[in-house]
Structures are given as structure tokens and as C-alpha cells.
Amino acid sequence: MSENQQLIKDLEEKARLIRGDIIKMLAEAGSGHPGGSLSSVEIVTALYFRVLRLQPDQPEWSDRDRFILSKGHAAPLLYAALAGRGFFPREELLTLRKLGTRLQGHPSRGMLPGVEASTGSLGQGLSMGLGIALAGKLDQRDYRVYVLLGDGESEEGQVWEAAMAAAHYRADNLTAVLDYNGLQIDGPIREVMSPLPLPEKWRSFGWAVREADGHDFRDLLDAFAWAAGVKDRPSMIVARTVKGKGVSFMENDAGWHGKAPNAQQAGQALDELGAGS
């Protein structure tokens, strides 16, 4: 097995464990958002276990790359990845959404090491990422900023204010990833309020755009390498994904956007993932 094949295999194993953690966390919490957490697993796993320059024992290291989860409802995924990278003890994952926890229902900056911004009110993360990116340019630091957006989230006007400003200021240290799973709470995005066509919109706003298979690590890693090489423009990776990916009865079902599995459903999901407790 080549080094590259081994890397992909390792990432796939991380992704499987993270999916298992997400299901366990949500079942324990009794509420939360499985669909959009599962759809972004490969994107976030690729970032935290390969792409981002981080020092988990120094979470505020000034030269670190930043990741902002603009679609803050995928918090269980972010927490599982952070715990997997050693930002905090993995046992703490099961405190999700409970009174007094550092693992708030949506990410809360300052409470948990590794959380870069307070998100959850949709459409805000790209603006914050832009501010960090512009500060990095000002200070001539070489860190990069990554922001994960949802496709339904792209209905928020602020996303496009930020898109315009990032291109205007030539923020080539800023990369956005779009979790293009096609579903929002009320149904398919094209039926609820179509933000389509998305790649074309981002191109017309002055961004460099590349599409990728959001569940294929080879394609995602190629896309991140491409993004790091884009000059004078911000970059957007439109990642095609499946909502609820990895759990058969959750896949492509908007009903699993914001509903936790019960114990029996969680058991079935963990069996499918081969991630039983």
C-alpha cells in the first residue's frame, strides 16, 4: 500500500469513528442535528486530520490555521473532530447540550478550546472568517482561514455581502467549503428557496470555484491543495454531499435535519457504521 493509500485509509477510519461519535452524542443529548453533521464528516475530517496547521496543546497559537463552522448546527461534528485531535478529552463529548457543558448546542467561542467563533445564527461565519483573513494579511502572517457553509445557509443575504467583500479585498488566504447536500429543514432547497446555481453564483462574485465529491478524501485533498494555490481571489470548494451520509435511514431525508436518534435507532446506526460502543 502506498503512503497515499494509507493516508486515505486512515482518514476513512477517522471519519467512521467521528460518525459513531456524532450518533452517540446526539442519542445521549436527545436532540441535535444529525443530517448536516453527517454530510460534512469527510470535509471536516480532511481539514482537522490533514489540512489545518494546528497545535492542539496551544489552541490559541497565533499562526494556526482557522476553521469556522458557519453552519453551526453541525456542532457535534466539530466537537468530535476537536476531541479526536486532542483539544479536549473525548469523554466530554457525551456532555453535549447538557446544562453547564462546554459543548453548547451551537459552537460558543471562549468556552471550548479549538472553537474559533460563535456560530449558529446562519450566514455569519464567512464574515468572521474574512475579518481574520484580512488581519492575517495586515500582519503578514501565512495562516489560512477555512469556513464551512451550508447550502440552505446560502439563502442568508449576509453570505453574499461577505462573498462580495472577500473578492473585493482579494482574500486569497480564505477558503470556503459549501456542503451541497440539497436539503434544508422544510425540504429540498430547490423547492423551499432555491439558491441555485451555486458554483455560478460564487464565480460571478469573483471567487475561484472548484467542485468536489464531498465524501471522497482524494478529491477533497486535491481541492484543498488547489485552494491553497489560488492567488488574488478567495476560493470556494462546492462539495457535493449526501445529507445523513453513512446511516441508511437518515440519508437524503430532510426529516433527520434536526432530530436525534432514539436508543434503538442509534444502535442500528452504530451497527451500520461498525462503530458500536
Binding site: 497565533s62 482557522r66 467561542r109 474559533e116 467563533a117 450566514g123 455569519q124 461565519g125 464567512l126 464574515s127 468572521m128 472568517g129 474574512l130 475579518g131 481574520i132 483573513a133 484580512l134 488581519a135 492575517g136 495586515l138 500582519d139 443575504g157 449576509q158 455581502e161 461577505a162 462580495m164 467583500a165 473585493h168 479585498y169
Partner: peptide, 28 residues
Amino acid sequence: PDRFFDMGIAEQNMMGAAAGFALAGKIP
């Protein structure tokens, strides 16, 4: 001029970007 950012007629993005500057250690 290097430390001034006109964000255009887009106040929501301006406040979000200001948050980002603060997250990076600036005083916006």
C-alpha cells in the same frame, strides 16, 4: 489607509468582519 476597511453598504458583514478582526487580536 492599510488599517481602514470600507465594507460598503453591507452592515451585517461589517460587524461580522469586525468580530473576525477581534478574533485575530486586532482592536476594530
